[in-house]
């Protein structure tokens, strides 16, 4: 049976392929549509939050921080309600992480404030003595890529039917409109809460520093 395959490379390859494809088909497919359902009341990320998510990915925060609270008392005591599948329905990609060198962040918005984050990202040791996290000062000067974030929102709306409003449309004009109407005001609100004059001035000048977008995203994690 198997031995015969070794002299017939074509059938050998087909056999190997079927053997390895089998498991994926059985474990992934049956729950696929069910796992994609959002929980009730879940809103898609705003453009600013998506830009912040982009910063989270760019600086690869998931090297050290998970976003998955497991159903144990020790974890719910520390981080809050355990995670539900439907909460991740708009996460492309998922950001569960695989190693907690730092704490879980899935509900960090519940117990940290924007000005705490502002201090923390500038100098982690100032708010967490003994912290080994590096300072992310470059996030205060780099400007967040809101255009790509907007492109992402349009893409998921059109390709996967994520329920964004009518103002999320393809094209530069629609983006400029959204930027003025929603993204910059949102950013100004966050920057004000971060109590950092420099950041506020930058947002007023129409440029959103990465850290403002990032904090908008972290605030959303609840």
């Amino acid at each position: 049976m198997f031995h015969w395959l070794e002299k017939n490379p074509f059938f050998f390859a087909v056999g190997v392929f079927l053997t390895i494809a089998f498991a994926g088909a059985v474990t992934i497919l049956p729950n696929f549509s069910k796992s994609a359902q959002p929980i009730k009341g879940l809103k898609p990320y705003t453009v600013l939050q998506l830009a912040g998510r982009g910063v989270y990915i760019k600086d690869n925060c998931l090297s050290c921080h998970s976003q998955m609270i497991r159903p144990f008392k020790a974890e719910t005591d520390r981080y809050g309600q355990y995670s539900l599948s439907g909460e991740y329905a708009y996460d492309r990609p998922f950001l569960w992480g695989s190693r907690r060198i730092g704490p879980d962040l899935h509900r960090v918005g519940n117990y940290r404030t924007p000005d705490w984050h502002a201090n923390h990202m500038w100098n982690p040791k100032s708010v967490v003595p003994g912290s080994i996290m590096p300072a992310y000062k470059h996030q205060f000067t780099n400007i967040a890529d809101t255009e790509t974030a907007y492109a992402e929102a349009v893409t998921v709306k059109r390709a996967f039917g994520v329920p964004y409003g009518d103002d999320i449309q393809p094209g530069k004009a629609a983006y400029e409109k959204e930027l003025k109407a929603k993204v910059l005001p949102d950013a100004l609100k966050i920057a004000t809460q971060m109590k950092n004059k420099d950041l506020i001035a930058k947002v007023k000048a129409g440029k959103i520093p990465e850290v403002v977008a990032l904090v908008a995203y972290l605030e959303r994690l609840k």
């Binding site: 992934i28 796992s35 994609a36 492309r92 998922f94």
Partner: peptide, 12 residues
């Protein structure tokens, strides 16, 4: 952007 979201993305 990934074709899969959340839990499905994690599984894949």
């Amino acid at each position: 952007v990934s074709m899969y979201a959340g839990t499905n993305d994690a599984m894949v």
